[in-house]
Design a protein around this nucleic acid. Structure first.
Lengths: 210, 210, 210, 210
DNA sequence: TATGAATGAGTATTCATTCAT
DNA sequence: TATGAATGAATACTCATTCAT
């Protein structure tokens, strides 16, 4: 979670770094990943210079925000897997609590530049891989439990998640249950019960990696 | 479909206008709604001056693109409703063929500015309203047919559509069936069959309008 | 002398372009090649935007200024060669009138960046080559005339020129004759008369080309 | 040679100071006198803070580098004068060995700012004066020896030196003898032998001082 | 005292919009 | 009317200098 340069940051530098990442998350969500760097600096209560000392350019900042996000989600995924009684419950909890992931997804989709910044980052790649690994497990287990329909793979599930995690139209953000209802519909679609036959082949985690 | 100024455009002006809208759609999809105006003008094989004569500023351009899009989708929706044997089929066709809608959705979500440009446009509002009107009908009919689960409203369905119409991660664009599979899962979630109970209240078309 | 893009510039654009090149020369001489672009724009009575439309970045501007300069010098060199009675006179005139060259030389030497901008420009390369070609001729002829010492080549002469064309200490700029005196001393060094033996080998024009 | 503050520096401070001056020389030669202060600090293996403690701003640093340089050259000049058999030999040796001077000259010429920093420094002024004093002596003596042409003054000689000490085009740095050849030509121009008549008046050392 | 983090003014560059041709 | 040149405000990024550790 520390920069790859290796040297541990001085206490104040560390604090600044964290503030900047936090501010960037907020601002990116509000204004998209092209938001003025000065806005981010201001939100972090820091001079632009400091922002640039820590993150040499916007691309780096986006990448670090994405890493931070993926790391948090991975932690949460593992917790869900460890703590929930059934795999299906883990899946549901994971989905419900992973609002963190939303930013990563938006970052990765919102602007072509952002996607480019993240695509070639090896560390983000590792997180993604690890995350999909966990998902493979949950999917397998949930299918063994008979809760999840057998004709889907981790790739299918991840894809569904990806869509669900998109920002809803602002109007609906206010209707508390809107997100939950779509999620419910989707989960019903995933449940093991007589449904339609899905076209094409099962998507695995591999299919989602670059 | 004509500009609100009233005067019908001369043939060549009309052609220019159409070229620009088409170019803008392409560029918006490729680069997002903040793409340089010059890029759009170039793609339309037109000088920036001409672009600005027709659309006084970016906001106007976005708005017109959105109107154009909604209009096409509305046409398609009505055709589906008129031509398909069952309401459920109309729903499916509508969803499957409405890639046009994708741009509107992306426009409305991709950047806060774009959303603002569209939100307060009365004409776009009318299209939206009309579209949701048609959707109410299909939903009602499909429920009467016993094909669609009874505990959802046009708002719920529209919301599902909205999510499905988002751009998939580029990687998956190549897997032909990916989009179809998610759609299948979603449709299974919508089908009338014993599913989980959805939280909150039924969402109507009204809930989606500003 | 026109940009390689090919299309002949509109009259006003042409005028602006020329003004910018002229202004850049002045400013570069006064402040060095790192002078603020805005200063150059202001000196050319033009907005920064215009400057950048014509010359996408500083490097390009430096390169174009260098080209322009070399082209002028080449013209002057040919005139001297054609009009002066002896090759030695042509050499002297060329040297004396080539204050234009001074800027090119300074540009090429003053800052590493400037040198880099020019080094890899093929057109500047051609000018240099052509210039050295003319110089070979004058040198040969002046040696045949018995005026120039026989143990020097075009490279040696060019090198001497290069040094003489450097900016004198400001203090001395005021002493009208200072530059002339150094030039006189140098010409006496070049004259055919019993002098010391020079070390190393004769430098040709080739030796000066990258 | 000590800073004007008076207090003799502690041993380690002294070492720092010397490292910084040495590093600054290197960096100035490589990147010009506008090189980032951090680069200089890094090259001196010292924090920026230390650099600034010793030299409150860039101007001061440049001035100190110039002083150091002039001091070294003066030492060398006196040694040449004392050790060489003839004044002409001293002149030649002085010229040949004074690569140190090159940096001062470049500093003084490379950027207008640097020149300004040096111009008004009394200590540098003294060094210059002393240097020109020595040069007057050598010139007089070399003329008395009949080796140096009688129609030049210390100012002329200094001017010639100044030009010769400029950085040659990089390409030629590789040709070992290039610098020597130009020097040879120049010395031939200075030699007492029938040459052309020089224009203007004899330049004295005074003419070079501000 | 030495260090390197923080600051913010200074500059390069881009691009929306206006205007001359 | 169509064009593309001109403008300058907005924004990215750098680096001299100051200051907390």
């Amino acid at each position: 979670m520390k920069a790859e340069s290796g040297a541990p940051l001085r206490a104040d530098a560390r604090r600044n770094r964290d503030q900047i990442i936090a501010a960037a998350k907020t601002i990116f969500v509000e204004q998209g990943p092209d938001a003025p760097m000065e806005d981010i600096a201001r939100a972090a209560a820091v001079g632009v210079g400091t922002l640039y000392r820590r993150f040499p350019d916007r691309e780096t900042l986006i990448r670090e925000v994405a890493r931070d996000n993926f790391a948090r989600v991975l932690t949460e995924a593992r917790a869900a897997l460890a703590e929930e009684p059934t795999a299906w419950d883990a899946l549901v909890r994971f989905l419900r609590f992973s609002q963190e992931l939303r930013l990563s997804v938006q970052l990765a989709m919102l602007s072509p530049q952002a996607e480019a910044a993240i695509a070639c980052d090896p560390l983000t790649g590792e997180f993604r891989r690890a995350l999909l690994g966990e998902l493979e497990t949950v999917v397998k287990n949930a299918q063994a439990e008979g809760a999840l329909r057998p004709d889907v793979g981790a790739g299918d599930v991840a894809l569904v998640f990806t869509l669900l995690l998109r920002q809803l139209p602002n109007k609906l953000d206010n209707i508390e249950s809107a997100a939950e209802r779509v999620m419910g519909l989707m989960l019903d679609g995933l449940r093991a019960q007589p449904g339609s036959e899905l076209p094409g082949r099962v998507l695995t985690g591999e299919d989602l990696l670059p």
